[in-house]
């Protein structure tokens, strides 16, 4: 352990305050009973109760959850299969390079470009099928597209980390392809798959741009709802909603950290 200069400590604490001050501010004012303005008028949880009476918000919460769950499940399955296909076969240098580039596109381009591309593509596909009307299906497709790349990258690094000795041993003992996948590879890969899935889930909850571009009138999510509400002015109810979303994020982050740390220790 190294001792830090007091300037380092002071700067760090200021930076942390800079990160947290706004968030704490929102949380504090979410339990303030003043209806308008930012004057402290006493503690209340009314704004939270009112959230659960607001049909719009409940529907947005439901949409957010459906979007995150469905896209995460599909992206995790597709991403895992893709990672195995990429890592466990003797592809030439060219194929590998090509796959690598495609996989990194969603990671290195600004998400607004992907969003714009999807809007245009869906706009053209709409002439073929009404499935591509703006709405939840489009949002799910958009989310899967960027989640898939992240899941594949995470799972692939796990594949590299576990090596091939165990698989080779299983083969030597006459394991069939299917048996090898089910009893050897998947159990060994599970921590990577779960980590990838959690990443995908948080990415979906965290996304605003892709959803904003592909959403329809019937498919509001919480971030979209908050964004629209902010433009009409800040209200205690929105403070409460934001605080709730923050709390869910905190729980997810702590769970993920616990999970990855316990796996590291093994």
């Amino acid at each position: 352990m190294r001792r830090n200069h007091f300037i380092t400590v002071a700067l760090s604490l200021m930076t942390m305050a800079f990160l947290y001050l706004p968030l704490i501010g929102v949380a504090v004012f979410s339990v303030n009973s003043a209806r308008r303005g930012l004057v402290w008028k006493g503690f209340t949880l009314d704004w939270y109760y009112k959230l659960f009476e607001n049909e719009w918000i409940l529907e947005a919460a439901w949409n957010t959850l459906v979007l995150a769950l469905v896209s995460t499940v599909i992206a995790t399955i597709l991403g895992t299969i893709l990672a195995i296909g990429m890592d466990r076969f003797p592809w030439g240098k060219r194929t590998n390079g090509f796959l690598d580039i495609i996989l990194h596109i969603p990671v290195v381009i600004p998400d607004i470009i992907l969003a714009a591309a999807l809007v245009v593509a869906f706009g053209l596909l709409r002439m073929v099928s009404s499935l591509f009307e703006p709405g939840l299906v489009n949002m799910i497709i958009g989310h899967i597209t960027f989640q898939l790349a992240f899941v594949a990258l995470v799972v692939r690094s796990r594949l590299v980390a576990i090596g091939r000795e165990v698989e080779e041993a299983a083969r030597d003992l006459f394991a069939s392809n299917w048996y090898l996948l089910r009893k050897v590879m998947l159990p060994l890969l599970m921590p990577g798959i779960i980590a990838g899935g959690m990443l995908a889930f948080t990415l979906s909850l965290d996304d605003f741009v892709i959803s904003f571009f592909t959403a329809g009138p019937e498919s509001q999510t919480l971030p979209l709802f908050i964004f629209a509400a902010v433009r009409r002015g800040v209200t205690p109810q929105i403070h409460a909603l934001s605080t709730l979303v923050m709390l869910i994020t905190v729980v997810l982050v702590v769970l993920t950290e616990r999970f990855t740390r316990s796996k590291e220790k093994e």
């Binding site: 942390m16 001050l21 501010g25 930012l38 971030p223 800040v234 403070h239 994020t249 702590v254 950290e257």
Partner: peptide, 27 residues
């Protein structure tokens, strides 16, 4: 580290909105 990760994963709309509040005229 967890304290740094939490804002990393908090939705951007919420964090931008939080600045709205901090920069309000009453603050």
């Amino acid at each position: 580290l967890t304290l740094v990760i939490i804002p990393f994963w908090t939705n951007m709309v919420i964090r931008a909105y939080a600045w709205f509040l901090i920069l309000a005229p009453e603050m």
